[in-house]
Every structure is written in C-alpha cells, then in structure tokens.
C-alpha cells in the first residue's frame, strides 16, 4: 500500500507541508516494505489548478491515501472520485517520519 505525504523537503526528517497542491515535495511511502521516494511537485509553479495537478500525480502513483494539512475543493473532488483516502496532520507533526508513525497508529484524522 502506497501513501503520499506533502512535504517541505526530500527526506523522512523533512518538515511536512500543511499545503497540498503547493507543497514542494511529496514523499511516497510503501507500507509493505518501508521503501520511500521523494517526488518534486511540479504543480507548485502552476498559476491555477495546482490542486488538480497534484491530485493527478497522486492518482497516477496508485496511492491509497493522500496525507496533507488540508485539501482544496478541487483536490478533494478529484481524490474522492478516485477513491483515494484523504488524511490530515496538524503543525504538531514535525517530521514526515512522525506523520508515517501517526498513519500506522491510526492517529491521523480523515479529511
């Protein structure tokens, strides 16, 4: 199972980004083998439609969940249409690692 988390940096120690469409990176994390990759979010430079573009990326990665601080209306529509679960963290999560642990222990809130 693959989850993607909006991030300010490229490692598990990076700070998570509360914004979805305009996060600089997405950390893709595979729960079956704990492998992870950082993807630069190309949508960040779009003047509009960043939420849809970022959602398309998540959909194309066949993720089962997208994790961010919040999701805009367009991202929400695209992700829910694709049956991708939206989960949220708040500013108390200081690293991507802590978000992953939060996910594993079911502490993240459904959006």
């Amino acid at each position: 199972m693959i989850i993607l988390i909006s991030s300010k940096g490229e490692t598990l120690q990076s700070q998570p980004n509360l914004r979805f469409g305009r996060a600089s990176f997405f950390i893709e994390y595979n729960l079956s083998d704990d492998a992870w990759t950082a993807h630069r979010n190309d949508a960040v430079k779009e003047s509009s439609g960043a939420g849809v573009a970022a959602s398309q990326f998540i959909i194309n990665r066949h993720a089962s969940a997208a994790i961010s601080g919040r999701f805009g209306p367009n991202a929400q529509r695209a992700l829910s249409y694709a049956d991708i679960k939206m989960l949220t963290f708040d500013e108390t999560y200081e690293t991507i690692q802590s978000v992953i642990e939060g996910y594993k222990s079911n502490r993240l809130k459904a959006f």
């Binding site: 509009s48 439609g49 849809v52 249409y81």
Partner: peptide, 23 residues
C-alpha cells in the same frame, strides 16, 4: 485532453475524464 490542458481543468480517472469547470 488532460495532457493538453494548461490549466488543469481536466483530470484523468481510471475510466473517465473529470472536468473542473471553474479552471
């Protein structure tokens, strides 16, 4: 159509195209 759209007004779902009219 999704590829050509500069404004991300279209998204590709598994079996169909989703439109975002305001974009």
């Amino acid at each position: 159509c999704v590829e050509v759209c500069e404004f991300h007004a279209l998204a590709q779902m598994e079996d169909q195209i989703l439109l975002f009219p305001q974009l």
